[in-house]
Nucleic acid binder design. Sequence first.
DNA 1: TGAGTAGATGCTCAGGTTGAGCATAACTGG
DNA 2: CCAGTTATGCTCAACCTGAGCATCTACTCA
Lengths: 300, 300
Amino acid sequence: MRIRGELVAVVLAVDGATPLVLASGDPARLPSGPLASDQRSLQGSVREFAAEQAGRAIGYVEQLYTFADADRISETGERLDRIVSVSYLGLTGLDRGESQQGWWQPVYGLLPWEDLRAGPGEELITMRAALADWARGSLERQERVGYLMGEAGFPWRPELALQRYEVMWEAGLLAESRDRASAKRQADPGRPMLHDHRRILATGLSRLRSMLQYRPMVFEMVPETFTLGRLQEVVEALAGQPVHTQNFRRLIEQQHQLVEPTGEFDRSTGGRPARLYRYRRELVGERQHVGTKLPLSRPR
Amino acid sequence: MRIRGELVAVVLAVDGATPLVLASGDPARLPSGPLASDQRSLQGSVREFAAEQAGRAIGYVEQLYTFADADRISETGERLDRIVSVSYLGLTGLDRGESQQGWWQPVYGLLPWEDLRAGPGEELITMRAALADWARGSLERQERVGYLMGEAGFPWRPELALQRYEVMWEAGLLAESRDRASAKRQADPGRPMLHDHRRILATGLSRLRSMLQYRPMVFEMVPETFTLGRLQEVVEALAGQPVHTQNFRRLIEQQHQLVEPTGEFDRSTGGRPARLYRYRRELVGERQHVGTKLPLSRPR
DNA sequence: TGAGTAGATGCTCAGGTTGAGCATAACTGG
DNA sequence: CCAGTTATGCTCAACCTGAGCATCTACTCA
């Protein structure tokens, strides 16, 4: 058996209040590129083909996960190849309306149960019901579903997007599921994608949502100068959850050094003019990492 | 150019107060296995060959990173192959003294500057000096070095082990560095490994140290029942840093549900007998994830 | 032009979390 | 019984977080 390698990119951006993912050639296909060519670094290669698809440079790129399990063996031709897909997450900004051109797809068209900004939507309610059905009779499944779907006293955790996708897949609720549940239960409210691209998207969304919590990621998805209101809108779009405005502002500001006011104002917001800020890129790498839960002592 | 795939495992354990990594066939080589075979899942395959090397099952396994950059092209023979290495982190427990058999190598023999339990060691001091030398004249480098090495007001962050390895590599201070610095500066106090195996080890150590902060990982490296003192010893070994005993205890206990006392005591600790605890595995998956820094609002 | 509406900002407050230590308890080895 | 060692209990102050109330400064419309 030979192996075939490929690169797959999950490129995310936010236009207005809509999070978008870049597709390629087909709205149900993530951009991908060859792995075996003569690139110096995979990351650079991803940057290249993703930028070409997006029509603009990708600001931030990091490796996500490598998918290579047996399910992914292609049955195209003479021989069974094992496909090894190295996936990357990319972030970029968009001008308002820019998503009309190109292959940008609304993320929540693909994973509609992930958007809680206006409360639990009907898609989430559908999935909760279907999962409850699947879990019937198994306490372990019930616990797991409750934990992932934010029921039974568990809070909703945006960053569990991947695990939610996986439990739905297991339950046979998704169009991509190997063992599809009976028609009664199978009611995938999202648009499916080719192969396991929707799973890869969920992986990227999960990772981004996790990182939003402890690293300055949003700044990659916003223009050079921005208002705190806009920043919040982007975070809410990505997290799929509303954010407490005053506390969000406090969080950003108290990280003095993280942003600085430009001195100018944006008066187009509809209310009081909003101060414009600039992200201080000159900060050392991952510096704003918030750090430990371990009660470390000072090393002697 | 063809690609060749392989699996590489970073299997970690703690014997006494010494963190260890599993080697294979050669103390400078991490265990590895083929990628292209007929395994159903890579993870399962890693479990298999790692367990064989370790002589015991590996409790926890997760994917780390996929290395595939141009530097890794092998020059062995006729054609240049690109080697794609999918690396995995594995955790397991050891009985006292068990590390004598098998290929267990002390982690801090390989990355000696990472152990701050007894204060900054001479190896760390050496590396700081060499890096200061490298950074001379560049404010940006100085900032970066200060941040990574815990100097100039920056705290020491255990989980930056990988970035430290990388800056040392860049500075030409390591035996593996492509552009080795002058003999004067090059004073790698650690034992090198083959290829980029030491980088992969650093990746695993970094990841484990990060996860220690917000997920119950230690329990994978400790017997069924354990004292809080032992748990702390393991954490300190892995973090390379002392931990405040009373607060550590509080942290573990306040996560009621995480552990429960067995009712028995260990009287071999030399002081007052220590209560034995058991980890409550029945908890849902990653449940003890501590959650958000974002000021989320309740979804309406 | 004055009222009403809409964001943007300022501030407060109670409760929970963290970092540091002091104090005690319960064994082991002379 | 005394000194040394590890395990536990508790306290306190500084900070951090989640929720809200109160203003401010434009804009829109009658």
